[in-house]
């Protein structure tokens, strides 16, 4: 029974990791850009939720209405201002620029909010649990967050494969020059992709804020979790990334159960094992 609970908790937190990862792989898929500031942007979203709940007096989950569009707007502006000029064959410029961005965001948050650990209160929903079977309980909030994660991935999948926008994303990723011949303005497409990524980041950030303590220095570890989920799951497949997130969550839960200090290390080890044994990931999308 005990182990079932452990794995269940791992699966539920894995949904959150899958959301961290989804925004990351979206950007890499469309622009071949790895955003080192990705984790810091998740933390930024958490702080935006904090400010929104305090100034507007609304609950954290309601704050999504403000935080998601706001982050999407930031993404749409960030791309042409900073990131578009780094795109190209050389991987150093985008890596270094996003690294610089990460440093700026972390230290900006530190100076605005200090290093204190904070958490958003969502009220009764935080402690409510549902009994699945005898002895197996699942928190309402983690379950809600898991369901939202599934919905987000399904929505991204739908956009990517069944809409004109998704076609534009995939075409621009394949061949930016020929995509222009179709009348697609690359800058606009990339900006939209970044906006979508940050919208997902916003959702993840709000859930992060409610779930656990957060502080300005947590960005890099969120990036790493998202990255590990992508690699474990396999490149090129959104549902694969989702599975990767779940597996990472389970690995961490098992590690934490054995010894609280081993939680994160267990995740890293799972990642390294997959890298050693199945470098393409567990569910890679095979391109013809």
């Amino acid at each position: 029974m005990e182990w079932i609970n452990v794995i269940l908790q791992g699966v539920l937190v894995g949904g959150l990791y899958a959301m961290f990862a989804a925004g990351l792989s979206l950007i890499f898929g469309v622009m071949r850009l790895v955003n080192i500031a990705h984790g810091d942007l998740i933390v930024l979203a958490a702080y935006l939720a904090l400010v929104t709940t305090e100034t507007l007096g609304i609950g954290p989950l309601t704050s999504l209405i403000v935080v998601v569009p706001l982050m999407a707007l930031i993404g749409y502006a960030l791309q042409p201002l900073v990131l578009n000029r780094t795109l190209g064959d050389d991987l150093l410029p985008p890596l270094l620029v996003t690294f610089g961005l990460s440093v700026i965001i972390q230290n900006g948050l530190l100076s605005l909010f200090t290093a204190d650990s904070l958490k958003l209160q969502a009220g009764d929903i935080e402690v409510a649990t549902i009994r699945l079977v005898d002895g197996v309980y699942v928190g309402v909030l983690p379950l809600l967050q898991f369901v939202v994660a599934v919905a987000v991935i399904a929505a991204l999948q739908f956009v990517f494969y069944r809409t004109a926008l998704g076609r534009a994303f995939r075409a621009t990723a394949d061949d930016p020059a020929v995509a222009q011949l179709m009348g697609l303005d690359n800058r606009h497409v990339f900006a939209l992709a970044m906006a979508a990524s940050l919208a997902v980041v916003a959702i993840a950030g709000v859930f992060l804020a409610v779930r656990a303590n957060f502080d300005p220095t947590q960005g890099p570890s969120r990036l790493i979790f998202g990255f590990e989920a992508v690699i474990i799951g396999g490149l090129g497949s959104l549902w694969g990334t989702f599975a990767g997130g779940l597996l990472l969550g389970v690995a961490q839960a098992i590690g934490a159960h054995l010894d609280p200090g081993w939680q994160i290390l267990a995740g890293h080890i799972a990642f390294l094992i997959v890298l050693a044994v199945r470098p393409a990931g567990l569910f890679p999308k095979v391109r013809t």
């Binding site: 080192i36 985008p94 890293h268 080890i269 990642f271 890298l275």
Partner: peptide, 25 residues
């Protein structure tokens, strides 16, 4: 042998994870 299985940006983050593993160990 491990990190060279990753390329480009992914290689970069992979090396970061290795450093984190060392730190935790």
């Amino acid at each position: 042998a491990l990190v060279f299985r990753l390329r480009g940006h992914y290689f970069a983050i992979g090396t970061w994870i290795v450093a984190e593993v060392f730190r935790l160990l």
